[in-house]
Computed example of a mutant assay.
Amino acid sequence: MAIMASRKHLKRFKAPSHWPIHPKEYKWTVKPSPGPHAIESSLPLLVIVRDILGIADNAREARKIINSGEILVDGRPRKNYKFPVGFMDVVTIPKTGGMYRVLPDERGRLVLHEIDEEKASFKLCKIINKTTLKGGRTQLNMHDGRNCLSENEFRVGDVVKLSIPDQEILERIPFEKGSLGLVTGGRHTGEIGRIKKINITRSSMPNTTVIETADKKTFLTLKDYVFVIGRDESVISLPGGK
């Protein structure tokens, strides 16, 4: 029984620090199933329904709500209570009218930021790789595991605005000097600023980016940590009205 429990559940004290659960309240919590986001950068759907949104008092109620198809992630019903929900995913609950985008706060914790219907109609996806297919078409591989075909010129690091759930590319947000970026990792997680300089190394050292905040302070972070969210202004609303 202990082996079965470890496959389906996760000891609470081993859960990622960004999960909003008390490590000593119970011994076990739900373990995310394999999916578009890693355990270190996602929240199980049950934790969202029960612990964050509070629309269920316990795990049994949460599983019932989820299994009924009442919770949509990126416009599609997700009935697996272990489904990993991660950065930039859009969670909607048609029955209550709730609409949320998953974003990091200033402490690096994933939060559900409430959004309106217009903002809930799209999500942002970062291009982490490109593949050339037979016939010369380009497949864009995104940070959330999805793939999109495109005939336009995109670069790794760019972000695309996708309509959901049909995945039509609406806009390209280039990773370039002057674009507005959200930092998703490191000690500056959750900070917003403009890209002032992109440092490309010719060695095994990682590429870095200089970010300037609204109050004219600058800091250096890894290029991979910067997720562009707009050119002149952010195309998404942000926690705290940033």
Rank of each mutant, 00 (worst) to 15 (best):
G98C: 06
E40R: 11
T131K: 14
L72I: 01
N58A: 06
V160L: 10
N147P: 00
R78N: 02
E168K: 14
K79H: 05
V210D: 11
E40P: 07
D158N: 11
D51Q: 14
G86W: 02
G190W: 09
A5Y: 13
K161R: 14
K196H: 08
T132C: 04
K119F: 10
M99W: 01
G136E: 09
S179F: 08
K11D: 02
N80A: 08
R50V: 03
K126R: 12
S204H: 11
I211R: 11
V90D: 04
V210I: 14
D105H: 04
F219N: 08
H143C: 01
K196Y: 11
T29N: 03
F154E: 07
L112A: 07
D158L: 05
V73M: 02
D215Y: 10
L45N: 10
S234C: 06
L182S: 09
H188P: 01
N80E: 15
G75E: 12
I173T: 04
S163Q: 11
L43G: 09
T221S: 04
E70M: 12
I65A: 00
S33N: 13
E171R: 00
L103R: 10
I65H: 08
T184K: 03
T221A: 03
H143K: 04
V183A: 10
S234I: 01
K134N: 15
R137P: 07
E25S: 13
K217F: 01
A214W: 13
P77Y: 05
F175P: 03
R194H: 08
P84I: 03
T184W: 03
D158M: 05
